[in-house]
Design a protein around this nucleic acid. Structure first.
Length: 591
RNA sequence: GGUCCCGUAGUUCAAUGGAUAGAAUAGAAGUUUCCUAAACUUUAGAUACAAGUUCGAUUCUUGUCGGGACUACCA
């Protein structure tokens, strides 16, 4: 239990004894004490004033005296400033934390809790390569899964590949018309990029045809519906659904090109899945849902045969759930898949990492599941993240205004190589070690950049200003780790030595931060928010760097002090490594 | 039109209703005979506007102004 929790618990007890009333942890607030005041943790007294009809000073004095008298192992002194009760925790407590945990590689992680969670993320379309927005999704999903594991959940990472539908047919039609039989192999192009080019070509041709029609006096709405290439694409979708052999053949071929490309990207960025669903296998699941909904009277059938649900009572619209031709729409398939996931894995929670542009869709999804009284309805949770935008606005694959994921990875690795070569600290590395280091640092910078901001908020990426390697960045944390490891290669850490009872201000600050790590991990899981981990590891690295610049470890005043600092260094390194791992970022032994 | 989200230093991001609004970067000035200077130290700089609730508001409420997303028998 952390000192914060101990203080919460003891404050509840003390208040109860002092004032003979029942209190809970929600009746007051505890913060870390601001550095300009004496003390480690602070009880904010204002909320108690009204209830107890006493002045903040009076409550603070009584509570402070009671806490220090009753729990001298945890609280040895207090002061009250303007309604804030600042409590000091003794050195022995902090040193105890250090000695108990400095060698524990699992420090901060929580035991298994018996709960199962599925995290669905990435979920690409197979008609174009991944871009920077997908990277945010992938890093978020991966990190959230790791954070949940660290909190004792059994986690299944899943992905639904949107491998069928009109958008796929667009690339297929364009390939048939414009490719002259060329392939990724014949053009030496990565498969997903190759297919993506034909998606763009489709849109160019489509635009051209629409313009031609409107120039000939057709209305824009009609032109958009009647452009020959669009009609051909719609026919192809029908042929696909009918299982026409040549269409199926082309579909398989082109999807395989895309998968070969995705495999490379996923391997590079370190994404993987426990279960991959393909929409071509799940798109019929909606039928069962429609039948169930009609039987329950939740859905209603129109005269033309289409099926609808009325959500106006919940402030939403009337939504279609099955077309008049009997095929199910996206939302219905999704509900079918949600149910299938539940049945297959018996999950307690199902998290969807999907952009906030689909907030409405996910709201509808959950609402329909609730109305159908599906057993998994309550477990559906949309982890909605903000879009990555360019200074000019939203990225659009169709218009080519995207930052390509592969280009981004290459650029990050190249930049890290440039920095590393300039600094010249690892000239003795083999080529293989160098390549691996460049990748570790480059990917570290990129992942940290995308994960350090609150997932809910949209973020702006300016391609003209490359991602930094200094300051609040992945390489900063990696560098701190590497520097510690360098010391630990040279200095001997002894078992069972005394570390003394004295702590300098900076030593104490590091220990206070280290002790918070388990709380940070649980909070990150509660919020499904990796950015709190990123902020934490940066803060820890920062105060360690201050300490490093100020005090020597190898040349400490005496052996006792040196051992204390070595332990502190080991625990800091372990915690940085562990926290970075939760973000999907590796740390190098040297850099 | 309807629903929802967002306006914090030049820029990119922080701040469960709590103390003097934190960082990073860019700017200015410093630190290397001593454990890795991808580091450290100092300095300057911000809550769009107006009311309200509160002991206390960046945070909650309302309004104004500005920006964005969604609102397909596409997936």
């Amino acid at each position: 239990m952390s000192i914060l929790h101990i203080l919460q618990k003891n404050t509840v007890e003390s208040l109860g004894l002092l004032y003979n009333q029942d209190f809970s942890e929600n009746d007051f607030q505890i913060n870390q004490t601001k550095p300009e005041f004496e003390g480690d943790y602070t009880v904010v007294l204002f909320s108690l004033v009204k209830r107890l009809k006493l002045s903040p000073d009076a409550i603070g004095n009584q509570l402070g005296a009671h806490l220090t008298k009753t729990y001298p192992a945890f609280f040895t002194g207090f002061n009250i400033i303007k309604g804030f009760l600042n409590l000091s925790v003794p050195n022995d407590y902090w040193i105890g934390v250090l000695q108990a945990n400095y060698q524990d590689n699992c420090f901060g992680k929580h035991p298994m809790n018996g709960k199962k969670v599925m995290v669905e993320y990435s979920s690409p379309n197979t008609n174009k390569p991944l871009h920077l927005g997908h990277l945010r999704n992938n890093f978020l999903g991966w990190s959230v899964a790791e954070i949940l594991k660290a909190n004792g959940y059994e986690v299944f990472k899943s992905c639904i590949v949107n491998d069928r539908g009109i958008h796929i047919c667009k690339s297929m039609i364009a390939w048939q018309r414009f490719a002259n039989g060329s392939t990724p192999h014949s053009t030496n192009t990565k498969g997903d990029h190759f297919v993506g080019e034909y998606y763009v070509k489709f849109n160019n041709e489509y635009k051209r045809e629409v313009k031609e029609l409107t120039d000939n006096a057709m209305l824009a709405v009609d032109a958009e519906k009647n452009a020959p290439i669009m009609l051909a694409t719609q026919q192809m979708l029908l042929d696909w659904e009918a299982g026409k052999p040549d269409v199926m053949e082309l579909w398989k071929t082109m999807n395989n090109w895309v998968y070969e490309g995705f495999d490379v990207t996923y391997k590079n960025i370190g994404s993987d899945f426990d279960k991959i669903y393909y929409e071509s296998n799940t798109y019929l699941l909606g039928k069962k849902i429609v039948e169930a909904g009609l039987a329950k009277g939740v859905f209603e059938k129109e005269e033309d045969g289409s099926v609808w649900i009325d959500l106006t009572a919940a402030g939403l619209d009337r939504k279609i759930v099955q077309r008049k031709d009997g095929t199910s729409v996206y939302i219905t398939q999704d509900i079918g898949l949600a149910l299938q996931k539940y049945e297959e894995y018996k999950i307690d929670q199902s998290i969807y990492v999907i952009g906030d542009e689909q907030n409405y869709h996910m709201k509808v999804l959950k609402l329909i599941a609730e109305k159908l009284q599906l057993p998994n309805a309550e477990n559906i949770y949309h982890l909605s993240y903000g879009m990555v935008e360019l200074p000019s606005g939203k990225m659009k694959s169709r218009e080519g205004t995207v930052v390509d994921a592969d280009d981004m990875v290459d650029e990050m690795v190249a930049t890290s190589k440039k920095h590393t070569v300039e600094l010249g600290k690892v000239k003795d590395f083999t080529d293989e070690e160098l390549e691996s280091l460049y990748k570790t640092i480059g990917m570290g910078a990129m992942k940290f950049y995308l994960l350090r901001v609150d997932p809910k908020k949209k973020m702006i990426f300016n391609p003209d200003e490359s991602i930094d390697f200094h300051g609040f960045t992945g390489p900063f944390v990696q560098y701190t780790y590497a520097r510690i490891k360098s010391i630990l290669r040279k200095e001997q850490l002894l078992e069972n030595t005394s570390t003394g009872r004295d702590l300098l201000k900076l030593e104490r600050e590091i220990l206070v931060a280290l002790e918070q790590y388990p709380t940070i991990i649980s909070q990150a899981a509660k919020d499904l928010n990796p950015s709190s981990i990123a902020n934490y590891v940066f803060y820890l690295a920062k105060i360690f760097n201050s300490f490093y610049a100020e005090h020597s470890i190898a040349n400490a005043e005496n052996e006792t002090k040196k051992q204390l600092r070595l332990q502190l260094a080991v625990m800091t390194a372990n915690t940085l490594k562990s926290g970075m791992q939760l973000l999907g970022i590796q740390v190098p032994e040297r850099m």
